[in-house]
Amino acid sequence: MTQKIQIDLVSDIACPWCAIGYARLEQAMKALTPDYQFTLQWHAFELNPDHTGEGEPILPALARKYGRTEEEMRATQEQMIHTARELGVNFEKMQERTTCNTFDAHRLVKWSEEQGQATAMKQALFDAYFGKALDVSDHGVLLNCVRQVGLDQVEAQKVLESDRYVQSVRDDETTYQQAGVSAVPAFIVNRKYLISGAQEADTLVQAFRDISAETE
């Protein structure tokens, strides 16, 4: 009998571990096919919700945030670039990016979800930010991501110029903060079990098997 797994994935576009975590999740889901059937829904989280104005170069911003030196942050990011490369994820310009607000990007993910393209949109945004060091608060960049996934740019522009999905994004953020999610990625499995962090694919595979065994 096919096991059904529902995953609510809480993440931010500006979070490198979220991109790595999803790539590892893909590996885990593939390893369990066809015995498991997965349903995935993305949920919004902002690492820097109060960000306004011009972006700051990422290395000094992270160094200040974590109380580390820029060289330490550069070394940490190099490790992430290596991990991403092994997973086939483009992080080639992650050290050239700047801080930015991701609220509108989350709104477009919500819009894309209605057309069955939320994952494709999320991946396009990850690629724009980490692979190309583009500002994913810029509407031109966002519309280019829309074009890449084959969705209607005119309709997307209308979304960006309106307040559509504003409440949906805020509801996500409130819901998961109240549920105790303070770091991302966070995987809520079958609306009951929390897996925190960008776990290795093998770890996720075992977790899904254990959860299925508990619910049988």
Rank of each mutant, 00 (worst) to 15 (best):
T2L: 11
Q3H: 11
K4W: 06
I5C: 00
Q6G: 11
I7R: 07
D8N: 14
L9Q: 05
S11N: 08
I13Y: 01
W17H: 05
C18E: 07
A19S: 11
R24E: 07
R24N: 12
L25I: 06
Q27R: 12
L32N: 05
T33E: 10
D35E: 08
Q37L: 04
Q41K: 06
H43V: 03
H43D: 04
G53C: 00
E54K: 03
K65C: 12
T69F: 02
E70H: 03
E72I: 10
M73Q: 07
M73E: 05
A75T: 10
Q79L: 14
I81M: 07
V89S: 02
N90A: 15
E92V: 13
K93D: 09
K93L: 01
Q95P: 09
E96H: 15
T98A: 14
T98Q: 03
C100T: 00
V109D: 04
K110R: 01
K110V: 06
E114T: 12
Q115Y: 00
G116F: 00
G116E: 04
G116C: 04
A118T: 00
A118S: 09
T119E: 14
T119M: 13
A120K: 05
A128G: 05
F130N: 12
F130S: 14
G131S: 00
K132E: 05
A133R: 04
L134G: 13
L134N: 14
L134Q: 10
D135M: 07
S137Q: 01
V141H: 07
L143T: 06
L143F: 07
C145A: 15
V146Y: 10
Q148R: 03
Q148N: 06
V154C: 08
Q157T: 10
L160S: 11
R164T: 12
Y165C: 14
V166W: 13
Q167G: 15
S168I: 14
S168W: 02
R170S: 05
T174L: 04
T174C: 06
T174G: 09
T175S: 08
Q177H: 09
Q178N: 02
G180M: 12
S182N: 14
A183H: 13
F187K: 12
N190T: 01
Y193A: 01
S196D: 00
G197S: 13
G197E: 11
A201R: 07
L204F: 05
A207H: 08
A213Q: 03
E216C: 11
